[in-house]
Every structure is written in C-alpha cells, then in structure tokens.
C-alpha cells in the first residue's frame, strides 16, 4: 500500500495541572454548535473531564474512535494511590458508557481538532496549560487518510445498530419525491 506523509494532530494532556474547571467542555460544545457559538452544553462536548474530585481525579479525555462493541480487556489503574475507573483513560465512544454521545440522538461524537482553527479551542481556552496541542508528521497508509465527517460517524453508528440495509431503505424512503 502506498505511504503518504500526514500531519498528525493530537492533544497532550497534563492531568496533574488540571483544576477541574471544565472550560474545555464548554468551549468545545459552543464551537461545534450550529450556528457556531450559538449555545453551550458540556454534555455535547467532545472533551470531558473525568472527575472524582474527592479522590483527586481530574482527567480530561477527548473523544476518539466510535466502536460498536465493548472491549474485552478492562483494566484498573492505581497511580499514586488513586484508583482510576476501568474506562478512565479510554477515548473510545463505546456502548458501555454514556460518554461522547450526542444527548438528543445518542449518536457518537468525535474530536475533530477544531478543523480550520489554528489549534483546538479547548487548548486555547485552557488557561492553565493542561491541554497541549501537538503536531507531527507521520507516514501513514494512503487508505487511512479518509476522514469521517460528523454525520458519517453518526451514520456508521446507525448502520451498526440497524444494519446497512435498513439504513439504506430508510434513506431511500426519506429521499423519495
């Protein structure tokens, strides 16, 4: 398979610095609203601060890939005496939890690094430098280059739930006339 050079964007999370304000959640939901900034709602955010304040746990996690099935190996981590939930650091949008699902439809949400902006808005709005934007070049397989848009991620989830045929039928009914 042909290799191409690609800019990989990611967010490094320095969780030790997190003070739990959730500004990242707010600005994310606001930026991704239509029209842009027309609302705010942390429940719609593609970054969530996993928090158990009394146990000193604040971990910002940004939404990764959608997956239709739960994973097998659920791990527990104890770090510096703190026990993190089994899914504590996981970025996947999976059936085992409510995280990163659009509250109205339940469809998966995925971080898009605020495409078009200089850097992701959560990074810009975290005034305490918990979130650090990183860009690096990597060689990747050409095929992987495809990016799924928001709606495609949602459709993929619907296809997983109802089957592609039913989804097709529904779409063709809706697009008649």
């Amino acid at each position: 398979m042909a290799k191409i050079k690609k800019k990989i964007k990611t967010i490094k999370v320095d969780a030790d610095k997190c003070n739990g304000c959730r500004s990242c959640e707010i600005i994310c939901s606001s930026f991704h609203a239509t029209p842009k900034y027309s609302l705010s709602n942390p429940a719609r955010s593609r970054i969530q601060v996993i928090r158990h304040p009394i146990q000193d746990i604040w971990v910002p996690v940004f939404a990764g890939e959608y997956t239709p099935a739960e994973c097998m190996g659920r791990d527990k981590y104890i770090i510096n005496g703190k026990e993190y939930d089994e899914c504590g650091f996981c970025r996947a949008v999976c059936p085992s939890r409510d995280l990163f699902k659009e509250p109205d439809s339940g469809l998966p949400l995925k971080c898009d690094m605020c495409e078009g902006e200089e850097k992701p808005l959560c990074v810009e709005w975290c005034l305490n430098d918990v979130l650090i934007f990183e860009e690096r070049e990597e060689e990747v397989d050409e095929e992987e280059e495809q990016r799924l848009e928001d709606m495609e991620i949602g459709l993929e989830a619907l296809a997983d739930k109802y089957g592609l045929d039913k989804l097709k039928e529904a779409l063709s009914r809706m697009t008649k006339d």
């Binding site: 609203a33 842009k36 900034y37 705010s40 709602n41 509250p103």
Partner: peptide, 29 residues
C-alpha cells in the same frame, strides 16, 4: 443533573467580547 443547551442570541459577538476579556485575564495573571 442537566444535559440541555443554554442558547445565546449572538454567540459570535459574545465570543468576540470574551476574547478581549480572556486577554485581560491572562495579562493580570
């Protein structure tokens, strides 16, 4: 527990003002 939206009449304008205020917060810190 709440997961509903708060709507803004002119969100873009609101964020413009917030940019100025954020710059001042950073300056003061």
């Amino acid at each position: 527990r709440g997961t509903k939206d708060i709507n803004l009449a002119d969100g873009a304008k609101f964020m413009e003002h917030m940019k100025d205020i954020t710059a001042y917060i950073n300056f003061r810190n």
